[in-house]
């Protein structure tokens, strides 16, 4: 894996690790971000990992761009040779999901357009192990890849004005849970009853870039018991 280090502004640099999206890359980028944060706790003020890149914000009185570049190359080499600890074990987060039209208003259409039964869509979606490739768009919103091509579906032409918290959506080959009520254009197939963003907790969200995520189908009763709510009013 080759690496490109580019200046962005007086306070930012970006590291490109690839041109193409690959979920396994997210794991390497997350490991590099962690290793750099550990190596430069005060000089590196912000890290923003994404699918193929890592944006770094540094404090220019604490480190120079040249020093930062050297640290990036050094940590990258360490990770490549497998010496650093960040590489080690991967955690898997399992999220309960109630898959049903009453909380997933696009489930029927998605099944019909894929030529599958609803049960098959659920099975395919919940059998896959996903990787958190990026966190953004909204607090705690984790982009998960990759959705099985059989159930990949485009974003809705008109986004919904208000999706309830917990909505589980598909957009192309990505899936995600909306942690808070928000507008959104992804096709919604179910709902996860767990709180996935809480600013009063540290960490605020269970997701970390590079982490593995699975979905586990639950019944309506289990959903309600876990604190899930049925939204009556879809906009």
């Amino acid at each position: 894996m080759t690496l490109r280090f580019e200046p962005v502004s007086e306070t930012h640099c970006i590291v490109y690790l690839s041109e193409v999206i690959d979920p396994s890359l997210a794991v390497s980028i997350a490991a590099l971000a962690k290793a750099l944060q550990a190596a430069l706790p005060s000089a590196l003020v912000e890290v923003v990992p994404s699918y193929t890149s890592l944006l770094l914000e540094f404090h220019p009185l604490r480190i120079s761009r040249k020093q930062l570049e050297r640290a990036v190359l050094e940590q990258h080499a360490l990770l490549q040779s497998g010496q650093a600890s960040g590489h080690a074990q991967q955690q898997t987060l399992t999220l309960p999901v109630y898959y049903h039209s009453e909380v997933g208003p696009d489930l029927d259409d998605l099944a019909a357009s894929s030529g599958l039964a609803k049960e098959q869509v659920v099975e395919i979606h919940s059998q896959q192990v996903y990787t958190v490739c990026a966190i953004g768009f909204a607090p705690g919103f984790a982009f998960l890849a990759s959705v099985d091509a059989r159930i990949a579906a485009p974003r809705r032409a008109t986004p919904r004005l208000q999706l309830p918290a917990g909505s589980v959506g598909i957009a192309e080959r990505q899936t995600a849970v909306y942690p808070q009520q928000s507008p959104g254009g992804w096709q919604i197939i179910g709902n996860c009853p767990l709180a996935l963003f809480d600013p009063k907790h540290s960490p605020t969200s269970p997701f970390e870039v590079g982490m593995q995520v699975r979905f586990e189908p639950v019944s309506r009763e289990q959903f309600i018991e876990l604190g899930g709510q049925i939204c009556q009013d879809w906009k």
Partner: peptide, 29 residues
């Protein structure tokens, strides 16, 4: 493009070609 981190002051060009300078409350990606 593949989504990437947005720095303070980034000049973004959306499809209508009208620049937006991204400030403190910008989205991260």
């Amino acid at each position: 493009l593949v989504s990437e981190g947005i720095a303070q002051g980034a000049v973004q060009i959306p499809p209508d070609g009208q620049p937006i300078v991204l400030m403190n409350d910008r989205q991260t990606l």
